[in-house]
């Protein structure tokens, strides 16, 4: 994790919605890596108690890597990361971030792209839009938000995108009907969702009824690991034990104890942190392992998953 990190300076901080703050990051030395639409970076946040690491989508045009922009929503049940970004980080501060990685790439052979964003889920699409416009791709953006909390960039998007832009402000009782949104779509349509699990599930269920193939549905879920009951984890090779607290993830507890686990998305999507399990009952919370793989109870995604049992033995 540490060798690859880039040191960046916070060049600007802007409030872009009541609960969302945007940060512009520039390189302290040299230049930033180029990136592709849909990329994210993992920001390291040295809190007082512990180090937080959260993934944030890059908002800017992928043709311009002179600065990275990210937007952070202050989470209602923040584990500390978003509070840190909102309360501690000021212009001129330095932060450590990972190089960009991309787990949410546009499918360029699609005939039609439907982008479905909820709240701060607009962020990955901010880097899609310039490239889609350059390629003259056929797309529509459906943006669900609550204007008392979120809804960042809605005015500029409405102006730039015109007829391609559809907004649904639930604070004004505007609802998006998923069945209508998906009905009568031609072959070659792909949909991209960034939002809460419930929205993704709704789309998947309507799409299944309509007979859509699974692979035309692409999603990125808001990925903060949810808390759970504390448990003890043991390393089979050394017998070392680590306590995993209620509000920290297994991955974070291992990192704290200086057990290195390769990782990338920190949200249960990419599969990088897959770790073999020798004993104990796993509570799977990831979107990476298949149903069969989960049932085998021999592999865990420590970035989001936890233990049902009081003790989990990792085969490392």
């Amino acid at each position: 994790m540490s060798t690859d990190q880039i040191k960046v300076r916070v060049a600007a901080v802007a409030q872009v919605a009541p609960m969302i703050r945007e940060f512009t990051l520039t390189a302290v030395t040299g230049s930033l890596y180029p990136f592709s639409p849909g990329s994210h970076v993992v920001v390291e946040m040295p809190g007082e108690q512990k180090i937080y690491r959260n993934a944030y989508s890059l908002l800017s045009d992928s043709h311009d890597a002179s600065a990275y922009r990210i937007a952070v929503r202050l989470q209602d049940n923040s584990r500390g990361g978003s509070v840190f970004m909102h309360q501690q980080v000021k212009e001129g501060d330095e932060l450590l971030i990972s190089p960009p990685a991309n787990l949410f790439i546009p499918q360029w052979n699609a005939q039609k792209h439907i982008l479905l964003a909820a709240g701060v889920g607009i962020t990955p699409f901010m880097s899609y839009l310039p490239e889609m416009q350059r390629r003259q791709a056929d797309f529509e953006l459906h943006y669900l938000f609550r204007s008392k909390q979120t809804g960042a960039y809605q005015l500029e998007l409405a102006e730039q995108l015109g007829q391609r832009f559809f907004s649904y402000d639930s604070d004004q009782a505007q609802r998006c009907n998923i069945s209508e949104l998906l009905a009568d779509r031609p072959l070659g349509t792909h949909i991209y969702i960034c939002g809460p699990e419930g929205l993704i599930k709704d789309v998947q269920s309507v799409a299944e009824q309509l007979g859509w193939p699974d692979s035309v549905i692409h999603f990125e879920e808001f990925a903060a690991p949810k808390p759970g009951k504390p448990f003890t984890v043991e390393l089979k090779s050394t017998g070392k034990t680590v306590q995993v607290g209620e509000s920290e993830s297994l991955l974070e507890a291992l990192e704290e104890a200086e057990v290195a686990v390769p990782n990338l998305c920190r949200g249960g999507v990419c599969g990088q942190c897959a770790t073999p399990v020798a004993e104990g009952e796993i509570e799977h919370r990831d979107n990476y392992l298949s149903v069969d793989e989960k049932a085998r109870q021999d592999c865990v995604m420590p970035c989001v998953s936890r233990a049902h049992s009081d003790r989990l033995v990792l085969d490392i």
Binding site: Q111, P186, L187, G188, W212
Partner: peptide, 9 residues
Amino acid sequence: LLGEMPLST
């Protein structure tokens, strides 16, 4: 032909 067919084909 494909241009005239539904997504669920």
